[in-house]
């Protein structure tokens, strides 16, 4: 028996229907059309399906679609501000932190969650923080550099915002 689920996806109220045993990953991809949510393993190991559920970083392959009822869902599709890419997205491009790109949406979402919690992570903290995301192509180094660079840029921006704020 199909269920009707109402949630806020990337800021918009969305209604979708799904089977009770259908994962949120499948529902987002196949019912809502958000193909930025990738399936690597389907068992919580690779992080390609990473999303935010009420702000918490989770693997959408380990969430049921029905659980999204009344909750906030954020995917990579909601990261940019219109055509303006998120700093993390820009830095991934600049540093060539992707090859096939299957892992990229998951890394972006996980890195965003990491930088919210810890705006100035060390390289080690980045590597631990992103341990739930696997990449078969890049060897991780460029991803770590991109996240470090994004953190720097984001901190500069928030600092300059704060100083202009004080001047007013």
């Amino acid at each position: 028996m199909s269920m009707v689920v109402n949630s806020t996806i990337n800021g918009d109220p969305i209604e979708f229907s799904c089977e009770p045993d259908e994962t949120l990953m499948d529902a987002l991809r196949n019912r809502v059309g958000l193909k930025g949510v990738k399936e690597g393993c389907g068992t919580g190991d690779c992080g390609a399906c990473s999303i935010r559920l009420d702000g918490a970083l989770v693997c959408s392959c380990l969430v049921l679609g029905a659980e999204a009822e009344g909750r906030k869902v954020d995917t990579v599709e909601g990261m940019s501000d219109g055509a303006q890419l998120h700093v993390l997205q820009t830095k991934f491009l600049e540093h060539a932190a992707l090859q096939c790109g299957v892992c990229t949406p998951g890394f972006l979402i996980a890195a965003q969650a990491l930088l919210e919690k810890n705006p100035t992570p060390s390289e080690e903290e980045i590597r631990y923080g992103l341990a739930g995301n696997l990449c078969r192509c890049t060897g991780y180094d460029k991803i770590v550099r991109a996240v470090q660079d994004a953190a720097k840029t984001m901190n500069k921006r928030s600092k300059s915002k704060k100083t202009t704020g004080r001047k007013k």
Partner: peptide, 9 residues
């Protein structure tokens, strides 16, 4: 237990 993603759940 697991990764940050698993920790969230």
């Amino acid at each position: 237990i697991g990764s940050d993603q698993i920790q969230g759940r």
